[in-house]
């Protein structure tokens, strides 16, 4: 009798996460970086995302305060990969609210352990491969004369991928909990990173051939009219050479803005001097 009433009271005090909380956390995750700051980076963003769960799991004021504070600690990762962290943390918070032996330090430690590797994967995959490839394809759609379909392809394609990934990552993390950490050692992430890097580099090669152009005024050089067939190869090689020079300049820590300004100046001088047209 006594035990039963205890169970009843704990059942009331310790509610489970509902589907609405899960969806609300998912929706909020698209606004993570709003309060990005140099002090603790995405800390408030993470707390903002977690807040429906905190509200549900910790009706008790002291516990709620503690939960808010632990999610306001330093946090920074690649934004889209953060959904995986959120999923695992939702799982842990639910266990903790349920009275399982999960300490506040455990939760913070899991966040810290995940944010580094995920940041290292997320930025090259999403910002280094998917976004440039999608946007360059979309720009090609525009220049092929299909106008509005370019921006639509880019916007819809990106957001379908992003939201689909965020939702499934959050769900996966929530279902598996800390088992996710095993994934980090399993090599799957390495394969994904490798595949994206390989594909990204292949596409960069094609983009350099298609998009980078140095418009030499070849007509000025009298030998060229006889070797028109050389033209395509030579301008392609020049494009590759220019890209390699830019990589070198960037490794020398030249800011991209300065690189662009230098190229603008070269363009103006080249046009004035009749080398470019």
């Amino acid at each position: 009798m006594n035990q039963e009433s205890h169970q009843q009271s704990t059942g009331k005090q310790l509610p489970k996460l509902q589907l609405t909380d899960f969806v609300s956390v998912f929706w909020r995750s698209s606004f993570e970086q709003a309060s990005w700051n140099y002090e603790r980076m995405q800390n408030l963003g993470f707390a903002y995302i977690m807040s429906p769960a905190i509200k549900r799991l910790y009706p008790d004021k002291q516990e709620r305060i503690a939960a808010m504070k632990r999610h306001l600690l330093f946090f920074n990762t690649s934004p889209i990969m953060q959904s995986l962290v959120t999923g695992v943390v939702l799982n842990l918070e639910e266990q903790r609210a349920d009275g399982q032996p999960v300490s506040a330090e455990d939760i913070s430690a899991v966040k810290t352990a995940m944010m580094g590797p995920l940041g290292g994967i997320g930025d090259p995959v999403w910002l280094g491969t998917i976004r440039p490839v999608l946007s360059a394809l979309a720009a090609s759609v525009v220049l092929s004369g299909f106008g509005i379909y370019g921006p639509i392809l880019f916007f819809a394609g990106w957001n379908l991928l992003r939201l689909g990934f965020r939702y499934s990552a959050q769900k996966f993390g929530y279902q598996r909990g800390t088992d996710i950490i095993n994934l980090f050692g399993s090599g799957i992430l390495k394969v994904v990173t490798r595949a994206s890097a390989v594909f990204g580099m292949f596409m960069m090669g094609t983009f350099i051939a298609k998009w980078v152009r140095i418009d030499f005024n070849l007509g000025r050089i009298s030998a060229f009219p006889h070797f028109v067939w050389l033209d395509r190869g030579i301008s392609a090689l020049a494009a590759m050479l220019l890209t390699i020079i830019c990589i070198w300049l960037i490794r020398k820590r030249l800011s991209p803005i300065w690189a662009i300004i230098i190229l603008f100046i070269l363009g103006v001088l080249g046009y004035a001097g009749g080398i470019l047209s």
Partner: peptide, 14 residues
């Protein structure tokens, strides 16, 4: 004219 060259900078960063 230099817009074609400037594209190289973006690819170089990536």
């Amino acid at each position: 004219i230099s817009v074609g060259m400037v594209a190289a900078v973006g690819f170089a960063i990536i």
